[in-house]
């Protein structure tokens, strides 16, 4: 019974502890969905009130950069899924390597995002920096405000995810994280990563592809 070692105080057995961790993470992710849900509601209302202007504003965004970034995130999710599979099989090196790759792709996403922001700044589309804006309608300005808040909040979540994956990658590779007994750690961190991916899956069509 290698598993009894990792059962903590309020739990009777490893199965109960694992179920509680999974349920807790799903509930937490539910609260994340509600957090971004408020922003999606704002986007819905904006489109309801000003359909034509929102489409115009959306066309000014860089569709292809967004598409590439979506692909980067989807691929990182694949890597996390593979890492979790390794962790469950007790393969320490594989876990570390896949998690590290996923975190690197997260960093690539952020780098592309920063490049995109700088393009938009040069085009006079990015609010909040004090520079004079070259927006054609007030609604475009409001749309870009929403774009900045939504993508910024998403980027912040991604940054947290990158740090999380890196820490777990190092702990897994170095053997400080017992695998497969404590596979729940990469599993729950992976859930978080996938959710950040899912949020982007919705942000991308709503912000970039409004036509």
């Amino acid at each position: 019974m290698a598993e009894t070692r990792s059962v903590a105080e309020p739990y009777r057995d490893a199965r109960q502890q694992r179920d509680a961790a999974m349920l807790g993470m799903y509930v937490f992710l539910g609260s994340e969905i509600m957090l971004f849900g408020g922003l999606f509601a704002v986007a819905a209302v904006m489109r309801l009130l000003h359909p034509a202007e929102v489409v115009e504003a959306s066309k000014a965004l860089h569709v292809w950069i967004g598409a590439v970034n979506t692909a980067v995130l989807l691929t990182s999710s694949l890597f996390v899924a593979l890492a979790v599979d390794c962790a469950k099989g007790g393969r320490r090196r594989g876990t570390g390597a896949w998690l590290f790759s996923a975190a690197s792709l997260g960093a690539v996403f952020l780098a592309i995002k920063v490049y995109e922001y700088s393009l938009e700044h040069a085009e006079g589309l990015l609010p909040g920096l004090g520079a004079p804006l070259k927006v054609s309608t007030p609604v475009q300005r409001a749309f870009m405000d929403l774009y900045l808040v939504a993508t910024g909040l998403h980027a912040l979540h991604l940054l947290i995810g990158i740090l999380l994956l890196l820490v777990i990658a190092i702990r897994a590779a170095s053997g400080r994280l017992l695998l497969p007994e404590r596979a729940i750690v990469p599993v729950t961190a992976g859930l978080y990563w996938h959710l950040v991916d899912v949020i982007w899956v919705f942000l991308y069509p709503i912000l970039y592809l409004a036509r």
């Binding site: 989807l74 999710s77 859930l191």
Partner: peptide
């Protein structure tokens, strides 16, 4: 129509992620 399709695809993608990647 465009909105419906893009949201439908987004739900499809997240469905795949939830079902397979999120266990």
């Amino acid at each position: 129509a465009g909105l419906a399709v893009s949201l439908g695809i987004a739900f499809g993608k997240s469905g795949l992620i939830y079902w397979h990647y999120m266990h």
